[in-house]
Simulated assay, not measured.
Amino acid sequence: MMKKKLKYIIGATLLFTAFILKAQDIPKELMGVYTSKPSNKFSDEFNGHRNNNIFDVKKWHYRASTKDGLGQGPEYVQEKDGKLICFGLKDQRKSGALVSNDYFQFGWYAFKWKTTGIYHNKRNAWHPSVWGSLDDTHGNNVPGTTGKESNWMEIDIMEFSTGGGEHTDWSSDAPAYLWVDSLKQKVKVNIEPGPSFSWKKAIMIDGKTDKYKEEVIGVKGHGDWQTLAMEYHPDYMQMWKLDKDTWVRIGNKVTFTDNTIPPTLRTVPRKAVKPLYWYVGSLFFSYGKTPIREDQITNSTFEVDWFHYHPIKKKSLK
């Protein structure tokens, strides 16, 4: 009888502990907005213990390789030891990434990550990122993002800089691609001819000046495990980080506005707000005013312990 009671207590404790851990996945104040449990279809713990260190192919596929910067296959991307590892190979000048098989949109996106071989006080040629795009690199596009009068918004939840002087940081931004009737083409807001319209790219964290606890966000701690999240709400985007066991807002809120309002540092026209395919990975991406030196190029990894997507609750879409 005592053994049965003990088993019950242990079991109840484990369930309670699991519930608490799951509840901490999103802030308490947002529990009524997003589902408390992450979507199994779009989330991944990266601990499937599959043969040959392969990832869950029902959820992801390799990002297509390119001549420069991107490789494809287990040499570059593995699910190993309970995490996703994207290897940056110095001798090949390539790394790899995964892309979600499906596109999805509003919700709470959270992931735990770190890098190796990337130092905050040195120039860096590797480009780890978690971001959303209009395509899956296999010929599929989100509806309404291509062709005449199409619009969309890239979302870089976390994107490392490369080639920017003797330091390395990461940022969070959301450049819009908007159809311009007078040009009969789609224009990215942060390159020509965008600036001639006084358009600006929406930035949540700039990696240069935005601070948390008096320290610029994204400039240090690349080799430490850290947990970031982004709210993709029907009305706005907001970055968060897990500070020990407490979720805190960081950076700047970007709101979605009437389509007649030009894009700014803190706004994006609603017509650009679309579902996206989601990328997790890295690539070799060296640029800058001066060529990167051989001694500045390293072997690296971008490691993701888990990636969670909590869909927005239907009542919040009203």
Results as ranks from 00 to 15, higher is better:
1 M>E: 15
4 K>S: 12
5 K>T: 10
7 K>I: 13
12 A>R: 15
14 L>C: 14
15 L>W: 11
15 L>V: 15
15 L>Y: 10
16 F>A: 11
17 T>D: 05
18 A>H: 06
20 I>Q: 12
22 K>M: 13
22 K>Y: 03
24 Q>M: 03
24 Q>K: 11
28 K>F: 02
31 M>S: 12
34 Y>D: 02
44 D>W: 11
45 E>V: 01
45 E>W: 04
46 F>R: 00
51 N>W: 11
52 N>C: 07
55 F>N: 06
66 T>D: 02
72 Q>L: 04
72 Q>Y: 00
79 E>I: 05
80 K>W: 05
89 L>G: 01
93 R>H: 12
94 K>S: 05
96 G>C: 09
101 N>I: 08
108 W>F: 11
109 Y>H: 10
113 W>L: 15
116 T>W: 03
121 N>V: 00
124 N>K: 08
129 S>P: 03
133 S>A: 12
135 D>I: 07
137 T>C: 07
145 T>F: 11
146 T>P: 03
146 T>S: 14
150 S>T: 09
152 W>T: 10
160 F>Y: 14
161 S>C: 08
162 T>F: 04
166 E>W: 15
166 E>M: 14
167 H>C: 07
168 T>Y: 11
172 S>D: 01
177 Y>S: 12
177 Y>M: 11
179 W>D: 13
179 W>Q: 10
181 D>N: 14
181 D>L: 03
188 K>D: 02
190 N>V: 06
191 I>S: 14
191 I>T: 15
191 I>R: 15
196 S>C: 03
198 S>I: 02
200 K>W: 01
205 I>V: 15
206 D>N: 09
211 K>Y: 01
213 K>C: 00
214 E>N: 14
217 I>C: 04
222 H>T: 03
226 Q>Y: 04
239 M>T: 02
241 K>S: 00
241 K>N: 00
241 K>L: 00
249 R>T: 05
258 D>L: 04
262 P>Y: 06
266 R>F: 14
274 K>Q: 10
279 Y>S: 01
280 V>R: 01
280 V>W: 01
284 F>M: 05
285 F>R: 15
286 S>I: 00
293 R>M: 12
296 Q>N: 08
297 I>P: 06
301 T>Q: 14
302 F>T: 07
303 E>G: 06
304 V>W: 06
306 W>K: 08
312 I>H: 01
